[in-house]
Amino acid sequence: MSTISRRSMLAGGGAGLAGLSLLGGSRAFGQGAEGGTSGGGMAHGGGASGAMFQAGRRVDHTANGFDPTEILRDFDWGRTSRLPGGRVLREWEIVAQDKEIEVSPGVRFPAWTFNGRVPGPTLRCREGDALRVRFVNASEHPHTMHFHGIHTAAMDGVPDVGAGLIQPGDSFTYEFDAEPFGLHLYHCHAGPLAEHIARGMYGTFIIDPKDGREEADELMMMMNGFNTNFDAEGNQVYAVNTVAFHHMNEPVRIRRDELVRVYLVNILEYDPINSFHLHGNFFDFFPTGTRLEPIEFTDTVMFGQGQRAVLEMRFKTPGLHMFHAHKSEFADLGWMGFFEVT
């Protein structure tokens, strides 16, 4: 039943080419309001059409303050100015906040966030820029911002080095240059490290090459999960960009033949590996994005925690193309979605 209603819902949603965010609110299951597993599912053997949350329940993105569909293409280029030598100075202000978010329908998670969202803002700059990240700790816990990249020890954002822990109410400005180009990440490095990361304190940090990359429809996907019962043994929910199964209900809309570039990062805590598998297509694979030549043409890649890669693909045919962790357990627990090619 869930497949049927999902498909019919998609057909309705696909009628217009309106922005995804506009469609978000109106999408809903045609059948199966609360408590309404009808006999249809049973007739097909029950649940054989795949993992899904209780029919009719959705995450309230408005209450969360962020929408995973918007996070996909939300690149924060910061505030720019010119230094005396002509270099670009790029500045951001990032605020650590404690915030309860809904990670799957009805499930609340007491997150620690950068700027009130999980993942934190996708910071984007160009190779060679001078960067200043003013970090304000409005959380009740000490935190840091630790960037992957090349920088001095004092700017590393770990306890007891440089500014060390930034206490609640304090702030600190991390300063470093944008190098090397590629796909990186940032996260809190306060202890216990696993908890500070698992609570949601991470984000993507993209340094574009000097001459840029080929024009493309660019998407950022942070593979994450939530250990909602805090037992530090695996996670209860898995996702890209926090909300499990989000792109099953609201597929990532892309255009046929257009180059699609995915900035894919794995921050998953408590599980040793994560993976990404694309249906009906292959992609060029640029690990860490630090070289402009792909090392592989594949449809499945595996990541350890902190590993990331740029993926480039073009879809030749319209329709729904699934993508998910090829660790099926993660897929069944939320890390599954669709590209909808039009």
Binding site: M1, S2, G32, E34, G35, G36, T37, G41, G47, A51, M52, F53, Q54, A55, R57, S104, P105, G106, V107, Q236, A244, F245, E329, D332, L333, G334
Partner: peptide
């Protein structure tokens, strides 16, 4: 409140009375 249910590490649709 039972928000979601997983069977053998797979989320499943389910029907229930009051939340």
């Amino acid at each position: 409140e039972v928000a979601q249910v997983a069977v053998n590490d797979q989320f499943v649709d389910f029907a229930a009375g009051a939340r």
